[in-house]
């Protein structure tokens, strides 16, 4: 009996040690991934990043993503996105960069906003929030819709 429990403890310790050392724990920023979201039609992070922004007042950072149609579109102030556009504005809580004092990087996902423009031009705004993320009603839909549509793409030569 006694001997069994000692062997058990040794095995347990061994398993712990192996389990902890077999993975390079900090090679990914797993915390910032989107995870499971019921009903979200596409993986927003696999679309093309159009720009990034921060809000110092609530310590968040957002990246705007777009599908092929949105990306190819020359987005002038007068002009608007074409039918078929899908945009995602993904917002994270910021966290200190553990490897560079002087930077902040994305922490936990705070919200995912999806804007789509249907083939006949109808626009839909959806807000996903919480943990895990799920579709929630947004009180300021119309305002957010136009705000997401008006975000300017980051220009690079």
């Amino acid at each position: 009996m006694k001997r069994k429990s000692i062997i058990g403890m040794i095995l347990f310790g061994l398993a712990l040690a192996l389990g902890c050392s077999s993975e390079r724990s900090d090679s990914l920023n797993d915390e910032a991934s989107v995870g499971s979201v019921q009903g979200l039609p596409e993986n927003p992070l696999l679309l093309t990043a159009l720009t990034t922004s921060i809000r110092p007042d609530n310590g968040t950072t957002s990246t705007l993503y777009g599908n092929e149609l949105a990306v190819r579109h020359t987005h002038t102030q007068e002009n608007s996105y074409p039918a078929g556009t899908i945009l995602y504005n993904v917002t994270w809580k910021q966290k200190a960069d553990p490897h560079w004092f002087g930077a902040r990087v994305p922490g936990k996902v705070f919200s995912v906003e999806r804007v789509s423009i249907g083939l006949s031009g109808e626009m839909v705004y959806e807000l996903y929030k919480g943990s895990p993320l799920r579709l929630v009603p947004a009180s300021d839909q119309i305002q957010r819709l136009s705000q997401v549509l008006s975000i300017q793409q980051a220009i690079s030569p």
Binding site: R24, D26, S27, L28, N29, D30, A32, S33, V34, G35, S36, V37, Q38, G39, L40, P41, E42, N43, L45, L46, D97, H99, W100, V105, P106
Partner: peptide, 21 residues
């Protein structure tokens, strides 16, 4: 240099593929 144990890369990529719908 301080990132030599991470193949000299500072960035810890967001796990883009951790997604389920």
């Amino acid at each position: 240099q301080p990132q030599r144990d991470n193949d000299y890369v500072f960035t810890r990529p967001i796990d883009l593929f951790n997604f389920k719908n």
